[in-house]
Structures are given as C-alpha cells and as structure tokens.
Design a binder for these strands. Structure first.
Length: 485
DNA sequence: TGAAATGTTGGGGCG
DNA sequence: ACGCCCCAACATTTC
C-alpha cells in the first residue's frame, strides 16, 4: 500500500497527526505539500506578510522533522485540484490521507479533489477537539448560544482522545519515484517580505516552548490576568492552532494533566472555555457556511453600513483619537497579533461608532493576523458587530474610554503602541481630549498635531448607532412577520 | 465578554 | 428635635 500524506496549511506537525499515524500502518508513505501559486506569487504573498513568515518557518520545521525520521517532504507547486490527482497517477499512489477542514471553500476544494481522484481520499479529524457536528441540542440542531453549547460539550469531553505521539521513524520515499516536480520551500526574501522579529516563531518546537512557558507561568493566573492587554498573560498559542503546529487536544490534555495537581482550577477552566469558543466558532461555521459572506442573524441583512473613507483610514492607521482603539490597530501591523480585549473594542468601534461594515474589518484582520483563522475571526467580528450568534445585543456599545480605564488603568498598553502619548498621566491617557492644557503641555501632546482629536464624538456615535440599528431592525422584523402571516 | 439613565436609600448639613 | 434637601452609593431599568 502506498499512501500520500497530504500536509496542508492547518496541520503542519508530526505529533498527534491522525493522517500520518494512519499511513504508518501502510508500507509506503509519501509526504506532500502543495504550493498554490495563487498564494505564493510575490504580489499576493506580500499581502499576507505575517502569516507567510509563520507558515514558511513552520513548513521548514516540518520538512526537517520528516527528514530526521527518514522521510522527505515533497513540495510541489500548482493548484491542488490538479496536482494531487496527477501525482497519484504518476507515483501509482493507492490512497490519499489528510485532515478535515471547516471552511466552506476548503470543503468544496476537498469535494472536487475526491471527484478527481481515482483512489480513496480519507479525511481525518484533528482540527477541533470534537468533530464540528458533534454538539447539538435536544432537537438535533446546532447551538446558537455559547453557554448551552459549552454545557453539552462538557458532557462529551470524555470522548476527546489522547494525543497520538509523533512517529519515531518513517519509511523512506519509494525508490521508483521521479521527484522532478518537487521544488525548494521558498524563503521570505524570495517573496520580497522583510523578516519581522516581533512575530512568534513557527514550527512544532516553538509551539512546545510556548505551551511549556504558558503552563509554568501565566496559566494559573489566567482568570484574572487574561483581560489585561498590557500583560503577557495569554497562551500565545493561537497561531499554533491556526497552522496546526500544535493540535488542540495536545493543549487540552496538557491542561487536564496539570489540573489534577494545581490549586488554580478556576483559571484552568477559564482557559478551557477559550478553547471551547474556538470549538463553537468552528461548529457554527460548519453548520452555516454562508457566515463568511452574511450576518448570522438574517435581520441584519441589508444593514445601512456607511462608506466612510476618512473613518476607515483613521481606524486602520490607528489615528481615531481613541487610544485603546489606536493601540490595537498599531499592534496588529507590528506584531500580527492583537490582545483579545483590544480586538473586541476595536471591532465594536469600527462597526458601531463608525458604522462601517464589519466584513471590511474582518478582512483587514485576516490580512494581518498571524493567527487569522476564518472561523474564529468571523465569530469574533460578528459577535462584536452584534450580527452574530450569541452576539452582544445591538444596544450594548463599548465605551472605548471606559474600557481603557478598566482594563488598562495605567495606560501601559496604550503607551507601548501609541508612543506619542507616553508621557500622559494615567488619569487622561484614555481621554487626552479631556486633559487640561497644562497636562497636555507637560506631556508634549498637541491635540490635532502629535495625536488626533477623537474622529467622532462618543455620545453622538453611540446615539447614531442605536437609532440606525433600531430603525433597521424594526423594518426587517416587520418584514419577517409579514412573511409569516 | 456594557453603558447610561433612572430610581432608591440613607447619612449628614442646615434652617 | 425635626423636617427638608443634597447627593453619594448602590440597585434597577432601559437603550
């Protein structure tokens, strides 16, 4: 039996890799990665600089690990729909194995490939702790609220398997193969992308380092510290979950193992809950593939989002005049990461204060986040905009100043990313436009020059959003009831 | 995984 | 001593 193990961009590991483990039972194993020219063309790759760096590092690490075990990762350029069937003919492959993906476009791609292949194409679970269709309510329908989802998940959590150890050795590539199609893994410079030292390192070893550091340090204080954006109190494992340099159940079982011996069980369950939000996001996108294009709640279709070029510019450049919102925008560019609290406030600001379509913000985040994952990012944005499942009700509007004062009381997070406010006293760091003249002068801040005035007044924007939403929902609701009648 | 408006209560100043 | 008002502080309701 000759098995082609198709590694894709969300399972770049050898530990707890179900397809690889399944292939080991066969005598011949061919590891393949397909380089789609659509993503790896320099003009396209440069649009995703942060994820490209993490991906290429992870790919190099995967190739090294596979060679260490006696095999070799074959990197083949082309469209996978065309490449995989061709390689199977050329190399007389008996079956193809890979990991299942959640995204609608990926499911369609896999459907096409299954049709084009003349050999079996087996997809294994592993992207999530439980398969996305597993948690359903009493009526067999998917959940649309997180809490009951999490309750049902807890009942099924004993079905989460133990991680599969990495293989100790792999069979070498079959000798009769021609490898003329394989190419080298491109490096960042080939794609015209400068290396960014602020990004997390890719690859499985780096992921294990992150997990170990998190277990030793921040985990036990997670419940109280995770919401403070100035602290390094989160796991930093989101890129590993996105690219699969660590499987979710590796993380899950590491937590359970520590759980037994630690007194900080509240923190552990708060962290586990974050992993469940990820499960929830994937389950939701699985059941509703239209979510990447449409609001979850149909009454938000046709919402009168504004085209506000100046507001958009201010938001992406971090020049809105709201320090927490601006810090988030700048951290995104610099680190390919934004602390969750800042993400929520920034997202809410774009959708509610500026009334700009949340999908534009969602796309912007997908462009620059290292951990940019379709399901999670969409869940977060729809939640923040109020259009999602288990969303904030439309009348809950974050006050960016109060959020800053509550979660960044000393302004440490703001000062790191908005250095022009570095000398502002804590009392006014989140509302520089309310600071007395002498305070501004002492802090070397000239509003409108060194730091912008608020691009929109909070009370005005809040009112405008509430009225807009109320009017729109009244119309769509009456339309809905007319349809029913 | 809100914030603002509105309502209620109770201590203290003061005529 | 008493009633009245003011206004934190807290609770509830509304957006």
């Amino acid at each position: 039996m000759r098995t082609l193990v198709w590694f894709r961009g969300k399972e770049l590991r050898i530990a707890d890799h179900a397809p690889l483990a399944a292939a080991l039972g066969d005598d011949e194993v061919i590891p393949v990665f397909v380089l789609d020219p659509y993503f790896f063309a320099p003009h396209r790759a440069r649009e995703l600089p942060h994820r490209m760096q993490f991906l290429l590092e992870s790919l190099v690490a995967l190739a090294k690990n596979l060679s260490r075990l006696g095999s070799q990762l074959l990197v083949v350029p082309g469209k996978s729909v065309e490449v995989i069937p061709r390689l199977c003919e050329q190399w007389r492959v008996d079956r193809v194995v890979s990991q299942r993906w959640t995204e609608p476009f990926a499911r369609e791609r896999d459907r096409q490939i299954a049709l084009a292949l003349r050999v079996p194409f087996d997809l294994f679970e592993g992207e999530t702790l439980l398969a996305p269709a597993d948690c359903r309510n009493g009526a067999g329908a998917p959940y649309s609220v997180f809490t009951p989802f999490a309750r049902t998940f807890a009942l099924k959590a004993n079905q989460i398997g133990k991680p599969i150890p990495a293989p100790r050795v792999l069979p070498p590539l079959p000798v009769d193969m021609t490898l003329s199609d394989a190419v080298a893994i491109p490096c960042l410079a080939d794609l015209g992308i400068p290396h960014n030292a602020l990004l997390p390192r890719g690859g499985e070893a780096a992921a294990r380092d992150r997990l170990r550091a998190f277990l030793r340090g921040p985990l036990d204080n997670y419940a109280t510290s995770r919401d403070i954006p100035s602290l390094a109190a989160t796991s930093g494992l989101s890129p590993d979950l996105k690219f699969g340099t660590m499987s979710p159940r590796t993380i899950w079982s590491a937590i359970l193992k520590r759980h037994a011996s630690s007194s900080a069980q509240e923190s552990h369950s708060v962290f586990q809950k974050q992993l469940l939000w990820r499960e929830f996001a994937h389950a939701t996108l699985w059941h509703r593939p239209d979510l990447l294009k449409q609001p979850f709640r149909s009454e938000f279709r046709g919402f009168p989002w504004r085209d506000d070029p100046l507001g958009w510019r201010a938001w992406i450049d971090g020049l809105t005049g709201y320090p927490l919102v601006d810090a988030a925008a700048r951290q995104l560019y610099a680190e390919g990461f934004v602390h969750n609290r800042a993400r929520m406030v920034a997202a809410s600001f774009l959708a509610k204060h500026l009334l700009i379509d949340f999908r534009r913000g969602e796309a912007h985040y997908m462009k620059y986040l290292v951990d940019g994952d379709w399901a999670n990012n969409n869940m977060g944005w729809q939640w923040s905009a109020g259009t999602g499942c288990d969303a904030q009700p439309y009348f809950r509007v974050f006050n960016p100043t109060l959020q800053g004062q509550r979660f960044d009381p000393e302004g440490a997070y703001v000062k790191r990313w908005v250095p022009e406010l570095a000398k502002m006293p804590a009392k006014f760091i989140h509302c520089p436009s309310e600071a007395p003249k002498e305070v501004l002068k002492r802090a070397n801040v000239v509003l409108g020059t060194t730091y912008p005035l608020p691009c929109v007044n909070h009370a005005f924007a809040r009112d405008r959003f509430l009225h807009t939403a109320e009017a729109h929902l009244r119309v769509t609701k009456s339309r809905g009831s007319m349809k029913q009648a």
